[in-house]
Computed example of a mutant assay.
Amino acid sequence: MLITPIVHSLIIAIIATTLTFLICLPIVYLLIRHPIKLNWFVESLFLLPLVLPPTVVGLFLLQLFGKYGIIGRFLALFADYSVIFTLTGAVIATIIVVLPIMYQSIKAAILSVDPTLSEAAKVMGATPYEILRWIILPNAYSGIIVGLLLTFCRGLGEFGASLMVAGYIQGKTDTIATAIYFAIQGGDNHTAIVLSLLDVLIGIIALLFIQFLNYRTKEVRQ
């Protein structure tokens, strides 16, 4: 009973973190290299989930992916498929919730790289992709890793939005966060405590690694 929600949470967090990184990296890089007048609007969209309750995000996704939603109706055309009450729905909800963390982390990491390095590479004929691959990423890797870890931990503990979209179905959509909640509701304090301690342990390991990266980065710069 304990293994399933742990596995589900890890799957959701890993997939959401990976997809969020792949979404944010090119967009942040393009906005920094080629700023547009609507930069503030794009950034506001990415940061919006940060100021909204997860339940509001979940409600929005239900309206979008539900039976009568725009995307929900489209998906229903394919063998009556729906992301509601599935791990896919939980992944989508988690992606939306963690977007601001990944966006801000990648932006801060890229901006921390000395712009003269990129300019020198550009003068020497490097393409934007080559600058990103050989200049930006190697010099911003510690900040990006921190963003990945923070995003992963936040995704691992996502509750409100994923509960509204994926629900709580034992063996199908249960996660660490939802399993803790319903274990408490059912009077199963032992399960709730064990899962909570596991979540805390993962968080501590991630934070210690972040501190280690920050320490190593300061040493290198000195």
Rank of each mutant, 00 (worst) to 15 (best):
Leu61Gln: 06
Gly203Cys: 14
Ile14Asn: 01
Thr217Glu: 09
Trp134Ala: 13
Ala206Lys: 11
Thr86Phe: 09
Ala126Leu: 02
Ser82Gln: 10
Ser82Leu: 06
Leu52Ala: 12
Val165Ala: 02
Ala121Tyr: 05
Gly69Val: 11
Val98Glu: 06
Thr151Gln: 08
Gly186Phe: 00
Pro100Trp: 10
Asp80Phe: 01
Ala161Met: 04
Val28Trp: 07
Pro35Met: 09
Ser82Glu: 08
Gly66Glu: 07
Pro26Ile: 02
Ile27Leu: 15
Leu99Thr: 14
Leu61His: 13
Ile70Leu: 15
Ile71Ala: 14
Val97Trp: 01
Ile36Thr: 15
Tyr81Thr: 12
Asp174Lys: 09
Gln185Ser: 08
Lys107Ala: 12
Leu75Tyr: 00
Lys218Trp: 03
Lys122Phe: 12
Phe85Trp: 10
Val42His: 00
Met164Gly: 12
Val123Lys: 08
Thr191Arg: 13
Asp80Tyr: 04
Asn189Met: 11
Tyr141Thr: 06
Leu207Tyr: 06
Ala161Tyr: 11
Ile96Asp: 02
Leu201Gln: 00
Phe46Pro: 03
His8Val: 03
Phe74Tyr: 10
Met164Pro: 05
Leu197Cys: 10
Leu77Gly: 14
Ala109His: 08
Ile15Phe: 04
Pro100Lys: 11
Ser44Gly: 10
Val165Thr: 04
Asn139Ile: 05
Tyr103Lys: 04
Leu45Ala: 14
Leu87Ser: 08
Phe41Trp: 08
Lys67Thr: 13
Asn214Thr: 04
Tyr168Glu: 06
Leu99Ser: 01
Ala161Ile: 03
Tyr29Trp: 07
Leu19Tyr: 08
Ile210Lys: 11
Asp80Cys: 03
Ser112Ile: 11
Gly147His: 07
Ile180Phe: 00
Ile6Thr: 11
Thr127Lys: 13
Ile96Ser: 06
Gly125Asp: 05
Tyr181Ile: 05
Leu99Tyr: 03
Ala93Tyr: 02
Leu64Val: 13
Val56Leu: 12
Leu117Val: 10
Lys218Arg: 15
Ile84Thr: 06
Thr173Ala: 04
Ser196Lys: 00
Gly171Met: 01
Ala126Met: 06
Tyr181Leu: 05
Ile70Glu: 13
Ala206Trp: 07
Val51His: 09
Leu52Asn: 10
Leu25Arg: 05
Arg33Gln: 15
Thr86Gln: 04
Glu158Arg: 10
Ser105Cys: 05
Lys107Cys: 03
Gln170Arg: 14
Leu111His: 01
Phe74Asp: 00
Ile71Lys: 14
Phe46Ala: 15
Leu62Met: 11
Leu201Cys: 15
Glu158Ala: 02
Thr191His: 09
Pro49Ala: 13
Phe41Met: 14
Tyr215Ser: 11
Leu201Val: 06
Leu197Pro: 02
Leu163Lys: 04
Asn189Ala: 12
Ala179Glu: 15
Pro5Ala: 05
Leu45Met: 15
Ile204Glu: 04
Asp188Pro: 03
Trp40Pro: 00
